[in-house]
Nucleic acid binder design. Structure first.
Lengths: 379, 379
DNA sequence: CCGCTTGTCTTCGATATCGAAGGAAGTTGC
DNA sequence: GCAACTTCCTTCGATATCGAAGACAAGCGG
């Protein structure tokens, strides 16, 4: 995180604005309940925010048995955020309003291997185009953020020892973007962003694990409603040793990593050996939908392996929800076999109220997560 | 947690008192830094606390380059806490002052299988004796707490599906104790208490795993400085499937649990088969100290299995510290082989700044942890 | 229709906190 | 030994927040 420009709000105002932006609060009474401030203080601050044209009032809401609340919403002119989710070969870009609602989403073909300077300069230009094309006139850009398919040091915004991003090691991504935009800048691992975006869709859950099953296998962890980073590398599950008959060496130098068996890349390689060629993990989902037996059986085996790894983590972390996303998650047998493995092997106490389900946030989860984290930096 | 009586302090005062009690702050300046309050506000509140005889001033401290601070300490008369760590066959009891310093510690022989009523009535009596014998005259008991060798529902203070505590399932332990003491009551899993006590000794660490290697294998998790409970069962590592040649059925109904190979109970059974009989896990430590080859080799193998399980969790959770405690942890080869397994198999990024070490808090870790958690309920 | 209950929002005096300024009591460097 | 700095703590006026009381606006039941 870096950059300087924030919205002109004082502490308490920022807190209130955030509660409205995230959709947790819709009225002054909601704000009083959630912020812990006295109702009178809330009224005063809201008055100021209305005057500053950051909030707007929007007619009466529905009564809960008494007087109807006066609904509050973020002013459309309060600002926009430009966010991206950089993948190995594709990038999704989005322009969001401050409440995290997408105004525009684009997908571009990129090559992360072109190196950080090239990719980030392109990204900055694409952000500018996005704002020019889709931001309402006069509405300022308040922050930019991007997800990276590799580990990110949250303190410095640098990429650290990425496995598939040649030329990016230790590159100061946040500083580079801050050089182009004098705004709050967010740089974060893509699975972490996805987890944050997903967490918004599970408001009852305090603790969740979000597994991203795509070309690789990633995982983001939400503890107590907040992203858990550990020392910056938390959430890795792809280099866990799995129980298998054969033995395969992983790119990390160890044998039998989960990634070498259950990642989209591994499945594509296995299919190719069977003479079936697909160019993206999403292609595997198509094959499963067409009931191609090799694909279904491979996906099922992958789900079982992922599930076996998750048993350890579910016993240990005891989450409320395990959400499975990523392009492979659209294959129904994947989640079914993950669920079977976890329920079979975990302690009853750990699975008692555990929900294992497909991700709810959809393809833009990481963009929404970036918006959510950026909001905290902006307000 | 239940009971009613709290110290007569207002919100801000409680926060300040806690910072002094936990040893984090020793002067008004410390309090201002740590609490985030203005120095002037701190002075006012401290003034009140001195007047209420909850704090005392204790001569000048050492200068940090300027005027010497006036040291603050909790008044000895502010109160005491009675805490216990119930095990299967032994119970440790302690009387602590509000800063968590033990005034007296006792160990008793008990039998948890005698059932909750018997054990808890005995415990309440023992607490009363402890206060009568060791609390300074006129100093009130402010709270009671106990650790339980099984899962505890934090919301209700009930024991949930314990594996080795016949008659305790779903018993309302906290309510029972609250019936005897009209005070804040704490009931918590023993490994969790140990983790909290241990965390005090690693002030630089935000995230730790504390492994308790004794008769069983437990684990407590500290995230962001606070105990992670999940849905109440977090921290279980003993029923993870391990990679072994043989196959052993665990009491939980699944094959090849860690506990069936690497727990003190398992090691004792294995030694017995070799004709070597010990009656407590601590006896194994003695054998290792005497360089009995069977014992050393068994402990080493146990360490390796525990370490292999920890690799998964270290990659996922990415803690600052893994502390190994429990009676077996005194055997040096245990920690050595845990460390070897973790460093060999984990991602370099996860082990970069990871410390794997013997627990620092000693045998009273759980008692100190109970004191720390109780303090939050009392202040 | 009318009181009763529930919930929302504002008004206004009481209270808590802040922040700038300054005095007190040290250390450091020359 | 003395000036310059640092840290600790307090004083005092400005500001933010609180909480009780009440006005307002609905639903509910007779």
């Amino acid at each position: 995180m870096s950059g300087t420009q924030r919205l002109p709000v004082t502490g308490a105002q920022g807190e209130l604005l955030r509660l409205v932006a995230t959709g947790q609060a819709e009225s002054r009474a909601d704000l009083a309940r959630l912020s812990g401030l006295a109702a009178s203080s809330v009224s005063l601050r809201v008055e100021e925010l209305l005057e500053a044209r950051l909030l707007v009032e929007e007619g009466p809401g529905t009564s809960r048995g008494g007087r109807r609340p006066r609904r509050l919403r973020l002013a459309p002119g309060a600002g926009v955020l430009a966010v991206a989710d950089l993948g190995a070969h594709h990038a999704r870009l989005g322009l969001l309003d401050l409440s995290g609602t997408p105004l525009a989403v684009e997908e571009h073909v990129t090559d992360i291997a072109a190196g950080p300077e090239t990719v980030l300069d392109w990204l900055a230009g694409a952000f500018e185009d996005l704002v020019a094309a889709h931001a309402p006139p006069g509405v300022p850009l308040r922050g930019v953020g991007t997800g990276i398919p590799g580990p990110v040091d949250p303190a410095t915004g640098r990429v650290v020892s990425p496995s598939r991003m040649p030329g990016w090691n230790n590159y100061p991504v946040a500083d580079h973007l801050a050089g182009r935009f004098d705004l709050p800048v967010l740089v974060e691992n893509d699975a972490n962003l996805m987890a944050v975006g997903e967490a918004r869709h599970w408001p009852e859950a305090d603790n969740l694990m979000v597994v991203k099953a795509g070309t690789g296998i990633g995982c983001g962890v939400i503890v107590g409603g907040r992203l858990h980073r550990g020392r910056g590398a938390a959430g890795d599950i792809s280099h866990v040793r799995v129980r298998t008959d054969s033995s395969v060496m992983c790119s990390c130098g160890h044998p039998d990593c989960l990634e070498a068996y259950a990642s989209g890349a591994a499945l594509m390689a296995a299919l190719a050996e069977a003479g079936i060629h697909v160019d993206r993990p999403a292609g595997i989902v198509g094959l499963v939908g067409d009931a191609v037996p090799e694909a279904t059986s491979l996906v099922r085996a992958a789900g079982r392996l992922i599930g076996e790894v998750l048993t350890v983590l579910v016993n240990f972390f005891n989450p409320d929800v395990v959400a499975v996303g990523g392009s492979l998650s659209a294959a129904e047998p994947l989640i079914t076999s993950i669920r079977a493995a976890v329920y079979e092997r975990c302690l009853p106490l750990a699975t008692r109220d555990l929900e294992i389900a497909a991700a709810r946030a959809g393809r833009d989860a990481a963009l929404l997560g970036a918006g959510a984290l950026l909001l905290e930096a902006v307000l």
